[in-house]
Design a protein around this nucleic acid. Structure first.
Lengths: 144, 144
DNA sequence: AAGTTAATTAACCAAATGGTAATATACAAC
DNA sequence: GTTGTATATTACCATTTGGTTAATTAACTT
């Protein structure tokens, strides 16, 4: 599986997010991490395994101690995805506003047809959708 | 379930991320969204349901058309969580560097003991862990 | 009414997921 | 060796998750 999916998957659990938050303050042991939760140690161990597999934490070893430490690179990557993505959204919003303005002008030039309001809306949708879609390829393989 | 968990959970799938990316360019129909994927319509419908439940998209309706639209607030929230979290990490790194420097100075003042290197490491771990942990409460309920 | 289009729902599947209880492993202290 | 501490692993459980096929629903056109 890809890095982003494992990262977001790891972040999808509140316990794991809390664990990461704790580790942001510094290295901790498994028992310490388990402390705040009404949960068994094996359950915590499982969560840590998920976080480790996502490279969000690293684990070291000193005798029976297994301190965990935050490794932030995947978070940076995930944050970057969201950040870049939001950029697209803001751009898209600008385009939408311009488009709607043009539409208002066109509407002003052409007198209303006798078509129902619903029919008009459908045409609007069709027009928007026939334009941008054809240039796209397989996103699932190209985005990440 | 909480908002962050559903958002991150939704983002944990590459198909769903690709769908969002597509919607960033503008509203699309279910069939259009399914186009790039080697996947059936019901599968896409399921993914859209997940995205809708996470409030990452909204769906409208025009005759048989069901155009989908991006709703970015949850992304902003998730991005904010990562952003704030990264801040904690940078702070923690500064503290770690200072701490290690102090440790170097202490080591310079005190001649090496005959204890093994492993034992020394353990003491380091113990010292760090007894200090910050006691002020923390239940993170799982407090973080989000 | 019949046919078409667009999408959803139901039923099914294998795999994954958050938990538990029991057990095993690793290490230190006595 | 025994006891205590810290943690991992195994087996189990119910639920959820990404997919499929088949059926159904909703809306439009002829």
């Amino acid at each position: 599986m890809d890095q982003l999916s494992t990262t977001f998957g790891a972040l999808a659990d509140p316990t794991r997010r809390a664990i990461l938050s704790r580790l942001a303050s510094g290295e901790s042991s498994v028992t310490e991490l388990a402390g705040p939760f009404n949960m068994t140690l094996p359950a915590i161990s499982k969560h840590l395994k998920v976080l480790e597999k996502a490279h969000l934490i690293s684990r070291s070893r000193t005798a029976q101690w297994r301190p965990c430490r935050l490794t932030p690179a995947p978070l940076k990557h995930a944050g970057g995805w969201i950040e870049e993505y939001r950029k697209f959204w803001e751009e898209s919003l600008d385009r939408l506003e311009i488009y709607l303005e043009q539409l208002q002008e066109e509407k002003a030039d052409h007198p209303p047809k006798k078509a129902s309001g619903r029919r008009k809306k459908a045409r609007l949708g069709t027009r928007r959708m026939t334009r941008p879609q054809r240039s796209k390829q397989n996103h699932a393989s190209g985005v990440d």
